[in-house]
Simulated assay, not measured.
Amino acid sequence: MKYTVAIVAIAIACSVIAVSGAPAAGQQEAQVVRYDSDVQPEGYKFAVETSDGKSHQEEGQLKHVGTDHEAIAVRGSYTYLSDDGQTYTVNYVADETGFHPEGEHLPRAVQ
Score class of each variant (00 low, 15 high):
Arg108Gln: 15
Leu62Ser: 00
Val110Cys: 04
Val8Ala: 15
Gly21Asn: 02
Gly66Thr: 06
Val5Gly: 02
Ala6Glu: 14
Ser51Asn: 03
Ala30Asn: 12
Ser77Leu: 05
Tyr3Trp: 07
Ile7Arg: 06
Thr87Gly: 00
Ile12Tyr: 12
Ser55Ala: 15
Gln61Ser: 02
Ile10Ala: 14
Val33Trp: 03
Val33Arg: 04
Lys54Met: 13
Gly43Lys: 13
Tyr80Ile: 04
Tyr78Ala: 00
Ser82Gly: 08
Asp52Tyr: 06
Arg75His: 11
Phe99Ser: 07
Arg34Thr: 11
Ile12Cys: 10
Val5Leu: 07
Ile7Gln: 05
Tyr92Met: 00
Leu106Glu: 06
Val33Pro: 02
Ala30Tyr: 09
Ala94Gly: 00
Gly98Asp: 12
Met1Leu: 15
Pro23Arg: 13
Gly103Phe: 05
Glu102Met: 07
Glu49His: 02
Ala9Trp: 10
Glu104Leu: 04
Tyr35Ser: 01
Ser55Asn: 08
Gly53Arg: 01
Lys54Trp: 11
Tyr35Met: 08
Gly85Cys: 10
Glu49Val: 13
Ala22Leu: 07
Thr87Phe: 01
Gln31Arg: 01
Gly43Ser: 02
Ser82Thr: 00
Cys14Ser: 11
Leu81Tyr: 01
Pro101Trp: 04
Gln31Pro: 03
Ile7His: 03
Thr67Phe: 03
Glu104Tyr: 01
Lys2Met: 15
Glu42Asn: 10
Asp68Thr: 11
Thr79His: 09
Ala6Tyr: 10
Ala24Pro: 01
Thr97Glu: 12
Gly85Ile: 06
Ser82Tyr: 09
Pro23Ser: 14
Val65Pro: 04
Gln57Trp: 02
Ala71His: 15
Tyr78Arg: 10
Ala24Lys: 08
Gln61Gly: 00
Gly21Val: 03
Ala109Glu: 07
Ala109Tyr: 02
Ser15Gly: 06
Glu29Leu: 10
Ala18Arg: 09
Glu29His: 08
Ala18Ile: 08
Thr67Ser: 14
Asp52Leu: 15
Ala9Ser: 14
Asp83His: 03
Val48Ala: 12
Met1Ser: 14
Arg108Thr: 11
Ala22Pro: 00
Gln40Trp: 06
Val16Gly: 08
Val33Gly: 00
Asp84Asn: 11
